[in-house]
Design a protein around this nucleic acid. Sequence first.
DNA 1: GCAATAGTGTCTCTAAGACAGTATCAC
DNA 2: GTGATACTGTCTTAGAGACACTATTGC
Lengths: 233, 233
Amino acid sequence: MSRPRTTVTLTADLVIVTIRAGHLCVLLVERGNEPFAGQPALPGGFLRGREDLNETAARELAEETGLAAESLYLQQVGVYSAPDRDPRTPRVITCAYLAIAPNLPSPEAGSDAHAASWLPVADARRLTLAFDHDQILADAVELARDQLQFRTVATAFCPRDFTIAELREVYEVVWGVKLDKPNFHRKVTDSTGFLVPTGRKRSTGNGRPAALYRAGPASTLAPPMMRPPGFAL
Amino acid sequence: MSRPRTTVTLTADLVIVTIRAGHLCVLLVERGNEPFAGQPALPGGFLRGREDLNETAARELAEETGLAAESLYLQQVGVYSAPDRDPRTPRVITCAYLAIAPNLPSPEAGSDAHAASWLPVADARRLTLAFDHDQILADAVELARDQLQFRTVATAFCPRDFTIAELREVYEVVWGVKLDKPNFHRKVTDSTGFLVPTGRKRSTGNGRPAALYRAGPASTLAPPMMRPPGFAL
DNA sequence: GCAATAGTGTCTCTAAGACAGTATCAC
DNA sequence: GTGATACTGTCTTAGAGACACTATTGC
């Protein structure tokens, strides 16, 4: 009881995921400063001034992706507070955020000094990331997998107008499974509030053109999209 | 970009819930110090020394309930970091935790100076709690409701040995619904790893004695226990 | 025996999965 | 026409809910 209140600084670290070329990818930066200079890490930054942590996360997200946070899905993953996770004083404790982005036009737009790049999550998990970012990445990906089951976040991976095949690819890539096309189609079109038909179609060059949809008003999926029992990274 | 890194102190605030006399109850304390002296609040305390936040939460939980954290369910709810949530300087930012406890022997055992008491959640939500604890309480209860669907946390509300009727009461009280006894019985006994039969029975004085079970090794429920569409506070 | 609670059987209905079949495009 | 992709129909099966029925206790 006689130990003093610990004074800390806070960071918001971002696990920004998207789908590129059939792979779930995460945005990593190369650290420019100590500690862990030169090592790959999740983007993030310090809580500054009178902002709250969600604002910190939104600011960093805008800096890294060039996109406004309002248009992206952004959610807390958790707090990482191990005393030795960062050697600096005062202690640095982080709140991790999961951000879901559609496939962005240019991978490194908006990045200034440090190199930012999209890396398949499977590859990123073989690297050693700075701090406890390995753990944060694993937790955030697992959270994303769970959320796909019960929330309508899959549309956050898609552009404003998208086809059911694109939405299905989201589930297949994030879960690492193959889904039945006809059953998936029925399931998502029957789910109230998930999708809104635009009435337009898009021809992909090959085959019958697919109807275009937009994200609907619902945030939760009823009934849920249950993930099949076996799945890969 | 020129704003300085904000230095803060951290607290872990606890939403400790249990079931008492058919009501979902939360442990509230009366604040002894400013700010918000005399107002009801969630128990909590400062991150001290070199501990991490989970240790802070576990320490506070032990102080309030007299129970070791290992025996209770304890999970992060989220970070609350609004700049004016606490008037003190340096800024106080909190990480909220949900703790689930079985019906404890004495309500205020272990509490020292401050008055701690169990209050039905429905009553607590009509009060004005200190800080942003109204919001934290609402978020934690909603999290508990969700977790009952997909995780085996319902057993955390029960003593070591319990009957299926006691487990059913957990779901009914937390969700605010009535469940069909026969169907609930079959569902939970068929769920692999949820319950382990002890082979013993308990007579309640009235009717056929119920078989006693203990919590099984599974942490997730497959298939999930879906909450019926309509539900109350 | 009766009242009360525990637990089982069985029926219906809905939703998921498998997969055949049809529709609409480019060529 | 062929080939490719989008979408629909239908069958089977698993699980949820309703609810009748049986089992085991105290009295």
